[in-house]
Structures are given as C-alpha cells and as structure tokens.
Simulated scan of single mutants.
Amino acid sequence: MKLFNREPAMWLGLVAITVKLLAAFGLDVSASQQAVINAVAAALVGLALAVMAHDAIGAAVLGLAQAVLALAVGFGLDWSAEQQAVVLAAASAVVAMWDRTQITAPAPATAAPRPLSGV
C-alpha cells in the first residue's frame, strides 16, 4: 500500500488542516471535537501502518476503538463511564481472541501425564 509511503505525519497534518478549514467556513465543531477528530485520524493511520508492517495490529485496533468511542462521546453519545468500559472490554476480548489465532507457541504442548498405577 503506497498511500502513506513514508509520510504518515503529512497525512495527519492534512486531516487536521482540513478540519480547521471546514470549521472556519461553517462546519459547526468545537475545538474539543476537532481534537477528537484528529485523534481518530491518528488512530486510523496507526492502524493502517500496523497492518502494513504486520506488527501490533491488536494494539492498533484497540487504539482505534478507544478513539472512535471518544469521537462518539465528543459528538454527544450519552454513555456512562461504565458503559464505555464494558464496550472497550468487549473490544479487548475480541482482539484477544483474534490474537490467539495468530500466535504460535514456541514449544509444543506437553502430553497429558500418564495416570499413576497402584503400587
């Protein structure tokens, strides 16, 4: 994927400037909402880079989930801290289950021990 090449920071800057430009010309977003949009963009770029590098994809997915939840809350999602925690815990569980399928143990599983015979 050559979209990002070696310039992910340039793309993030472009997103930040575009959001500021849109806000300057009528898009009704606050400064905190702009910050959250930029955080989501950073999480998306981090996920894309992790996928391209085949490294730490699970962590990038969780970062993206956190950023998207922050974006939703920033734009009015009315969830309690407990509800947010449960959603992020579920996302963590899904990522952990996926990670488990991607990892190979460095040593084979040991055989079940033989039952002891009566002496």
Rank of each mutant, 00 (worst) to 15 (best):
M1R: 03
M1I: 00
F4W: 12
F4Y: 11
W11I: 10
W11C: 05
G13S: 09
I17S: 07
T18A: 11
V19T: 10
V19N: 11
A23Q: 15
A23V: 12
F25A: 05
F25G: 04
F25V: 03
D28P: 15
V29I: 14
V29Q: 08
S30A: 09
S32C: 04
Q33G: 06
Q34K: 15
A35G: 11
V36A: 12
I37P: 00
A39M: 03
A39H: 07
A41D: 06
A41E: 04
A42F: 07
A42T: 14
V45H: 02
V45N: 07
V45S: 08
V45L: 15
G46N: 15
G46P: 02
L47H: 12
L47M: 13
A50K: 05
V51G: 01
V51N: 03
A53E: 10
A53R: 14
D55I: 01
D55V: 01
I57V: 13
I57E: 04
G58M: 02
A59Q: 12
L62V: 09
L62Y: 06
L62A: 06
G63R: 00
A67W: 00
L69M: 15
L69R: 13
L69N: 10
L69V: 11
A70P: 07
L71F: 14
V73S: 14
G74W: 11
L77E: 10
L77T: 02
D78V: 08
W79P: 00
S80D: 04
Q84K: 15
V86I: 08
A90P: 02
A91K: 06
A91Q: 14
A93T: 08
A93S: 11
A96K: 07
A96C: 00
W98S: 08
Q102K: 12
I103S: 08
P106E: 05
P108K: 07
A109Y: 03
A111S: 11
A112W: 08
A112Y: 01
A112K: 07
A112N: 00
P113S: 08
R114I: 02
R114G: 01
R114S: 04
P115T: 03
G118M: 04
V119R: 12
V119Q: 06
